[in-house]
Amino acid sequence: AREMGVIAAMRDGFGFIKCVDRDVRMFFHFSEILDGNQLHIADEVEFTVVPDMLSAQRNHAIRIKKLPKGTV
């Protein structure tokens, strides 16, 4: 199932999404941004959540798609 959120932080090559449906900041890597979009803080996005290979306690966001403002 796809989830929605807002870009909360951007770093060098990765960032975090503030999720709508869960009280966490979800890690993502820039390589998972679809359509070659440039994302910025406060952009609204949808994404798929998958378990982190390195840590069973953590998840991360993949297949991130920018949404029109006002969607979330």
Rank of each mutant, 00 (worst) to 15 (best):
M4P: 01
P51Q: 13
I64D: 03
D35A: 06
A42F: 13
I17H: 01
R58K: 12
V45I: 06
R63I: 04
F27Y: 14
A8D: 13
H40I: 06
T48Y: 15
H60D: 03
G70Q: 01
M53K: 15
D21Q: 11
E44T: 03
L54M: 15
M4E: 08
R25T: 14
N37G: 11
I41R: 02
H29P: 09
P68V: 07
E3M: 12
L39Y: 05
F47W: 02
R63Y: 05
K65G: 03
E44W: 06
D43K: 00
D52M: 09
N37R: 11
V72M: 07
D35C: 04
A56Y: 14
F30Y: 11
A8V: 13
V45R: 02
M26P: 05
I64Y: 02
E32D: 15
N59E: 11
L39V: 08
M26R: 06
V45F: 00
M4L: 10
E44Y: 03
M26V: 15
L39P: 02
R22F: 02
S55V: 04
H29K: 15
S55Y: 09
D52A: 11
R58M: 11
I33G: 00
D43H: 00
G70L: 01
K69E: 05
I17M: 01
V45L: 02
P68R: 10
D43N: 01
K65A: 08
R22H: 12
K66D: 00
D43S: 01
P68H: 06
N59G: 14
G15Q: 04
V72R: 04
M53H: 07
R25E: 15
D12R: 07
V45Y: 03
C19Y: 04
V72L: 13
I62R: 06
K66Q: 09
D35G: 11
D21L: 07
G36V: 06
G15R: 00
I33Q: 01
Q38A: 12
A56V: 11
F27Q: 13
A61C: 12
G36F: 06
R58I: 12
L34C: 15
E44S: 05
I33P: 00
V50W: 07
D12V: 04
D21G: 10
D21K: 11
G36D: 09
Q57P: 09
I7S: 04
P51R: 13
F14R: 03
I7Y: 02
E3D: 07
I64A: 01
V50R: 09
E3F: 10
E44M: 03
G15S: 01
G15L: 03
N59K: 12
I62Y: 06
E3V: 06
M10V: 14
F16C: 08
G70C: 00
E3H: 11
N37T: 12
R22V: 04
A8E: 15
L34S: 10
G36H: 07
V50G: 07
G36N: 08
I62T: 14
L34G: 08
G70Y: 03
I7F: 04
I7N: 02
D43F: 05
V49F: 05
R11N: 15
G13C: 03
F30H: 10
M53Y: 14
E46W: 02
E46F: 00
C19R: 08
G13T: 10
E44K: 01
D43W: 03
A56C: 08
I17W: 00
H40G: 10
G15K: 02
D52Q: 09
A61Y: 12
R11Q: 15
A1C: 05
V49M: 07
F16I: 07
D21T: 14
M53R: 07
E46D: 00
D21S: 12
F30S: 09
I62V: 13
A1G: 12
I17D: 01
I41Y: 02
I33C: 07
L34H: 05
D52Y: 08
I7P: 01
I17C: 04
K69V: 08
A8W: 08
R25P: 14
H29R: 13
A42E: 15
L39D: 02
A42R: 09
M10R: 08
V50N: 09
G13D: 14
G36T: 09
V45H: 03
G15C: 02
F14P: 01
D43R: 00
D52R: 07
D35V: 02
I33N: 02
S55L: 09
I41G: 01
D35I: 05
K65R: 11
N59W: 08
R25A: 11
F27P: 15
R58L: 09
F27I: 13
M4G: 01
D52C: 14
M53I: 15
P68L: 05
G70E: 06
H40M: 14
I64K: 00
M10T: 04
E3Y: 04
V50Y: 08
K65S: 05
Q57S: 12
L39G: 01
A42K: 07
A8R: 03
T48W: 02
H29A: 12
D35S: 10
D43V: 00
D12P: 04
V50E: 09
V45D: 03
F30C: 10
N37C: 14
M53E: 12
A1V: 14
Q38H: 14
D43G: 02
E46N: 03
V24N: 13
D52W: 08
V45W: 01
L54W: 11
M26Y: 14
V6D: 13
R11F: 13
D43Q: 01
D23R: 12
N59T: 12
I41M: 07
H60M: 11
